[in-house]
Simulated scan of single mutants.
Amino acid sequence: MDPLLATANAAADNPPTSITPPTSSPPPSSAPRSSGRLWAIGDIHLSFKANREALEKLLPHPDDDLILCGDVGETAEHCHIAFAKAKECFRRVWWVPGNHELYTLPSQKETGARGEAKYMECVDIARGYGILTPEDEYVLWEGAGGPVLVAPIFTLYDYSFRPDDVKLDDALSWALEKDIEATDEHLLHPDPYSSRIAWCHALVASTSAKLSAAVAAHPTIPLVIVNHWPLRQDLVQLFRVPRFSLWCGTTLTEDWHTRFNARVVVSGHLHVRRTDWVGGTRFEEVSLGYPRQWQECVERGLDINDLLREIMPGPEGPVGERRETVWRRFG
């Protein structure tokens, strides 16, 4: 079983309200600003009715910008709902895909897009709302604490987040020993690549080249790198289901925070909210998660607005050293 699974068919009993996409959108502005903040949230999983209701409570931030850090849902309809609400509340929005956006559901087995084509369907929907994606040029952000270059990326995973004594060929069996198997193995197809590993490695190569070009063009401007999957294996700490790490990233990105001059790295996927500092870079895990995973927040009177993470300017941190994790259980 997938311990982080949002049941792909959970929306069947509570279908979301239909939303008509805009007929046109102006290109996103990159006008400089001396104020305004950059926020992030990921894993809002709109297949759950409670999460759709939570999203409706999102308050307007007309001078601020938002990062949607993947896993808004499994369907085009989920993307429309998330993107429409985000643009209603924020001036500018970035989105990166998570594994759930890439799913081809059983009901779409014969006619639904698969793999890269499913990803590009989501990109097209995002662009319809004027939302920036990994397929767009990186934008200079000049709000509070800036300037920074916001770099949304897409890397997938290659099963390399595993113990040294577990061979790649044995990795899936190793996870299954503890009844762990990601739903990706059945619903996330790599087409046109031969495997998810091959797709991941192609994405890493193209993304690395794009980041290198960005750093060369803006050598004095730090980056905010945004990826659904964590860039570093040591930040994947799933105490109850450690073998789920297989589906959580690739060791090929371990040094990207220093190699590409990142001030902040934003990720989701783990459903474990936290802040870390490594080598002077701040790492933010910004998941909302499934309703049961943030029920304690609701019981404390918190809502989705309290669980938005401030990326810029964000908290102060040490330079050149590692700091103890700040666990963000209640935001």
Rank of each mutant, 00 (worst) to 15 (best):
E137C: 00
E137R: 03
Y138P: 12
Y138H: 14
V139L: 13
L140E: 13
W141I: 10
E142A: 13
E142P: 03
G143V: 08
G143R: 10
G143A: 08
G143F: 10
G143W: 10
A144E: 15
G145T: 08
G146M: 10
G146S: 12
P147G: 05
L149E: 05
L149D: 05
L149T: 09
L149C: 13
V150I: 15
A151N: 04
P152T: 01
P152E: 02
P152N: 02
F154T: 10
F154I: 06
T155S: 12
T155W: 08
Y157M: 01
D158E: 02
D158C: 04
Y159D: 06
Y159Q: 01
R162W: 04
R162A: 07
P163W: 07
D164V: 04
D164E: 12
V166L: 02
V166E: 01
V166Y: 03
V166H: 02
K167Q: 14
L168H: 15
D169W: 00
D170V: 00
D170Q: 12
A171W: 01
L172N: 02
L172Q: 06
L172T: 04
S173H: 07
W174C: 04
L176E: 15
K178H: 06
D179T: 07
D179H: 08
T183I: 14
T183A: 13
D184Q: 05
D184L: 04
E185A: 04
E185D: 06
E185Q: 09
E185S: 05
L188D: 11
L188I: 12
L188Q: 08
H189S: 08
H189T: 02
P190I: 01
D191P: 01
P192D: 00
P192F: 00
Y193L: 07
Y193N: 11
R196N: 15
R196E: 06
I197Y: 07
A198N: 08
W199K: 09
C200I: 04
C200Q: 04
A202L: 06
V204P: 11
S206M: 10
S208M: 06
S208D: 15
A209D: 14
A209S: 13
A209P: 02
K210A: 11
K210V: 00
L211T: 11
L211Y: 09
A213E: 14
A214G: 08
